[in-house]
């Protein structure tokens, strides 16, 4: 019986590596959310106004909303493939705490879908004429905020993974929950450009991130157990 015992840490790393490897093999799935982010962000100047001054006013909001929508779009393939090929069931049967395995999957997913969006955001910010002193703030707040989108979205995906038409339900469930992060992120950019100190906003975003890291994977795990019966 007691041949090879893996520790929870090993299981965590194994899950993380496996998901990153799968993402690497399916580069298209990886590129889609990123492309989506670029396209949505470039629709705003076309739809609202090409005037640089008006764009500068809405740039922060546009970037945050595009990042939120891109993260929502990317969520769908977080558990679906695993659900369809049965490996999700194996994950649930594993003796390790589901919290760490779900967290590993969320981290892997954010690394391939959230991080590229954050990295490219200064470029889009430039194109939207965001004041240059806000680039760093935008980058840091997105870096703290987009993982929260992934962690919250993970709960919604886990609840709807067995459904045929889950896309819209996922949006209805997840988007209202993401509002606090959106508020903190856009306020940080707007208020600091008016001279407010950044540290308070970073503290709030950091608190949201820590709270969702510690609670959301538990909820996702419970939701997965419900969905995979």
């Amino acid at each position: 019986m007691n041949k090879q015992r893996t520790s929870t840490g090993q299981a965590f790393w194994a899950t993380l590596q496996r998901d990153l490897l799968i993402a690497y093999k399916r580069k298209n799935d990886m590129a889609n959310p990123f492309m989506f982010f670029l396209i949505v962000a470039s629709l705003f100047p076309i739809g609202i106004s090409p005037d640089p001054e008006r764009l500068a006013e809405i740039a922060a909001g546009v970037l945050w909303i595009s990042a939120l929508l891109a993260s929502l779009l990317a969520m769908d393939n977080l558990y679906r493939a695993d659900y369809e090929d049965g490996s999700l069931e194996q994950l649930l049967l594993s003796p390790h705490p589901l919290y760490f395995l779900v967290l590993a999957k969320n981290i892997a997913h954010w690394l391939v879908s959230g991080l590229p969006v954050v990295l490219v955001s200064p470029l889009i910010a430039y194109m939207l004429n965001l004041p240059s002193e806000s680039y760093m703030i935008l980058f840091v707040t997105l870096l703290l905020g987009t993982p929260v989108f992934s962690l919250l979205g993970s709960i919604g995906v886990a609840l709807t993974v067995g459904l045929g038409s889950r896309g819209l339900i996922l949006a209805v469930i997840t988007l209202p929950m993401s509002v606090p992060v959106l508020i903190a992120g856009t306020l940080a950019i707007e208020q600091t450009s008016n001279g407010a100190s950044l540290s308070g906003f970073l503290a709030i975003l950091g608190a949201m991130l820590l709270a969702s890291i510690s609670v959301a994977p538990l909820a996702s795990g419970a939701a997965l157990r419900i969905s995979v019966n």
Binding site: L159, M177, P180, A223
Partner: peptide, 17 residues
């Protein structure tokens, strides 16, 4: 489960809004 998550979330939304 969603009601419990939503209840926590409503409080956060309330304060942040």
């Amino acid at each position: 489960l969603l009601s419990i998550v939503g209840c926590i979330n409503v409080v956060v939304i309330k304060y942040s809004v």
